[in-house]
């Protein structure tokens, strides 16, 4: 089971609200490579993982992704706090506002609601870990793209932290894949599926 800690993993303190930034950063909440997809991906892949080290990595990275989901929500909350109707209209956030007001609803920057179709659970260690490695790189690219579009240092700081965590997670999933391959037949990694056969 989970226990909630009443703190963010890394501080979010944004002085100036900005609807334009919220409109793009929301992709890391409900987009294909966002934090919700990441947490759901890892926390559900755990069950079919045959090696305890890999289960441990998935549990703990998946849990950290929930903390990142909260950080993104905190960024969105602070970026949209106290905006005027005029600012919302000008930024183009009005198409979100009309349905969700200033509620936090997981959608992509293009307004597509979160979908479990973004998450791959194949029930095969090598396939799932490669999905995870790719997912971390895709999330890193999204953060890089956000950093290209956002100037405010108050927003960039937690985004840079989150970008860095994607790189660390990629390294840890690399460990997981190496541990897995060490346990398999090096002449044919695909001889059997240790989660099923």
């Amino acid at each position: 089971m989970w226990i909630y800690e009443k703190k963010l993993q890394y501080p979010v303190k944004i002085k100036n609200p900005n609807a334009n930034y919220a409109k793009i950063i929301i992709s890391q909440l409900g987009g294909a490579d966002g934090e919700l997809a990441a947490s759901m991906r890892y926390l559900h892949q755990r069950y079919s993982m045959p090696y305890k080290e890999v289960v441990g990595i998935l549990t703990d990275v998946g849990t950290e992704e929930l903390a990142h989901l909260e950080m993104i929500s905190a960024i969105l909350y602070q970026l949209t706090k106290g905006l005027s109707s005029e600012e919302i209209k000008r930024s183009g956030l009005d198409t979100y506002f009309v349905d969700h007001t200033s509620g936090i609803y997981p959608v992509s920057a293009a307004g597509v609601p979160f979908d479990m179709k973004y998450v791959g659970i194949k029930g095969d260690v090598i396939a799932d870990l490669n999905e995870d490695l790719a997912a971390e790189q895709k999330a890193r690219v999204t953060y890089d793209n956000i950093l290209r579009l956002v100037d405010d240092p108050d927003v960039r700081d937690p985004i840079k932290y989150l970008r860095q965590r994607e790189i660390v997670h990629y390294q840890r999933f690399g460990d997981a894949l190496r541990i897995t391959q060490d346990k398999l037949n090096s002449k044919n990694f695909y001889a059997y599926n240790p989660a099923f056969d």
Binding site: R46, Y47, K52, E53, V55, G56
Partner: peptide, 9 residues
């Protein structure tokens, strides 16, 4: 020992 089996499920 955090990663030790059995797992909660």
């Amino acid at each position: 020992h955090w990663i030790d089996k059995p797992l909660p499920w």
